[in-house]
Structure formats: C-alpha cells, structure tokens
Amino acid sequence: MVINVFQAALLGLFACLASMPGLGGTSIGNYTLGRPLVAGLIVGLILGDMTLGIIVGMAIQVVYIALVTPGGTVSADVRAACYIGIPLAMMAVKAQGLDPNSADAAALATTLGATCGTLGAILFYGTATINLAWQGMGWKWLEKGDTHKLYLVDMVLPWISHIVCSFIPTFVIVYFGQDMVSFIMNSLPMDGLPMKTLFALGSLLPCVGIAILLKQVIAKPTDFLTFFFGFTLAAVMGCNLIAASAIACFFALINFQISTLKNRPVVAAASGELTAADDEEEEDI
C-alpha cells in the first residue's frame, strides 16, 4: 500500500474540515468527519481499502467514544487521530501482514491512533493560537464599522491556520511517514516484547475512553449498577448494542414515569411550559 501525493493532499483537506475548531463546522466537521468510525470510511475510500479503513477506524473509535472538550481543553486531537492515525495504522497492519479482522490488528490500530491523537493535541493549540491573529484583525474591523469583514474572520481566514496546522502536518506525516512505518513494522518481530507491549496497550486503551464517559455520567455509587446492568446484558446475555439500547430505553421509560409521578403537583401548575420542554427534549434524543 502506497499513499500518493494526491491521496495525502485529500487526507490533509479532510483534516482541515474535521478538527475541533474545524472548517466543516461543529456538527458536520468535528462531530461527523472527526469521529474515527466515519473517518475510517473516508480514509478507506481515499486509500482504496474501505474494509480495512473501517476496521481500523472502529478500533480507534472506542478510545474516543466520548471526546468532550469542556472549556476548550483537549487531551486528544481528532484530526490527528483520524487523518494521520488511521492511514498510518492501515499501513502498519498491511506491513505486518495482519488479518484485518484479528484482535492484533485492532490493538495495533488503537495504539497508533491514540498516540497520534495525543501528540496531535499540539495541533489544536496551534490552530487556536493562530486564530488569535484573525480575531485581533476582527476587533479592529468591528471598531471601524467594517462589519462584513467579520465573515472573513470567522469563515475564511481560519483556513490559513488550518493549512499550517492541519493540512501540512497531515500531508507531511502521511506522505513521508509511510516508509518509516513499514520499516519499523518490518524490523519488529511479532513475538518480541515491543510488539507484545503494543498489542497489550492497544487492548487496554479503550478502557480510557469508556472511563472518560463514565466519569461524566456516574454521579453516585449506585449509578454503577446501571452501567453494570448494561455490561451484563452484552457480556452475559449476549445482547448486541441495538438490543441493549432497546432494553435500556424501556427501563429509562419506567424511570421517567416514576419521576414524573413525583413531580405531578408541579406539572399541574405549569403544564404549558413543561409540554413544550418535553417536545424539545424528544427532538434531541
């Protein structure tokens, strides 16, 4: 598998669109193109091996299942995990001659993707820092009454930040790094300690992603029971995720009905407003 200039440039473009303050916008860029599962499909299509792309993307996705950036602090960068990590991981899996469907391939992809994502945080801070310059110009234009130039500040000039911090790093690392990945992979024996560590780490890393999510939703110790219930559904009773979601919705419905029963007097007092709330919330589900 060889990545040509055109393919590397396309990956660079997607990196510009997908990053956290990305030019694809938040919903389409960060939350769609910046999810490793989706990126796996895109990178797979660009590099001509969709199946491998998706398998690699999926392995990395578990680590980043809940990438929340409270107050703009990031511990990982999606553009690097997706558009640098996935291509390199695909190269590595091919170079090692691993079966794409094997746990080894998933573990290798996870380790490489998470490493790129973690080191890539520097790209996030780089982009945000360069954007300060455009914002500085924006304040001057606003003061002068050149209000239409605000569009330039918000939607056009950040492209420069992204050419520097997304396009060029992705292009360079993917295009020039491919030989290095193949070389490293070929020189490491499969049963040596470095590869074994890599595989073991790859199987452990998804725990961090799940734990980040747990950190948010577990408010009191009994919340662990809910988590454990879902775990048991899949681990012991063999439910797949759709079945587990359906069962979860059923229990949540019961829980909701009990809670609203407790709120009954309040409901009567302000029913108009609350109906509106329900409609609104249901749209969000």
Partner: peptide, 15 residues
C-alpha cells in the same frame, strides 16, 4: 440512564 447502560454494553462488546 440509557447512555450509562449503553456504555456498559459498549464496554463488554468492544473492549
């Protein structure tokens, strides 16, 4: 609550 249960299932399925 749905989210917490699904995370549990994700943990058992994908890790």
């Amino acid at each position: 609550m749905v989210g917490t249960m699904v995370i549990g299932a994700v943990c058992a399925t994908w890790v």
